[in-house]
């Protein structure tokens, strides 16, 4: 089991490394860095709050079932 897990971890790391973009973020022009930060930042905030939304909805459903 442990061996299988180690192989899986190594395989995942190799795939991630291969898929990783070769762009060095530090070398990008200043404004491009800004645009990337803005786009990723806004997306991140919406994503995390969307997860909070899903969580609350799930809790509401569980609460409704309990009430029934």
């Amino acid at each position: 089991m442990m061996k299988w897990f180690m192989t899986l971890t190594e395989a995942t790391e190799t795939v991630v490394e291969a898929a990783a973009p070769q762009t060095d973020l530090t070398q990008l022009p200043l404004f491009t860095k800004g645009l990337l930060t803005t786009a990723m930042g806004l997306l991140g905030v919406f994503l995390v709050l969307a997860l909070f939304f899903v969580t609350i909805k799930l809790m509401q459903k569980i609460g409704a079932k309990d009430a029934q």
């Binding site: 404004f31 800004g34 803005t38 905030v45 919406f46 709050l49 969307a50 909070f52 939304f53 609350i56």
Partner: peptide, 28 residues
């Protein structure tokens, strides 16, 4: 109130727009 009406949570994200707009303007 938020747990009763969770759709309001997205305003907490939308109203952060100014942070990033100001960040970009500041860079210039």
């Amino acid at each position: 109130p938020l747990l009763k009406d969770p759709s309001m949570i997205f305003f907490g994200a939308a109203a952060q727009f100014g942070i990033f707009a100001t960040f970009l303007v500041s860079l210039v």
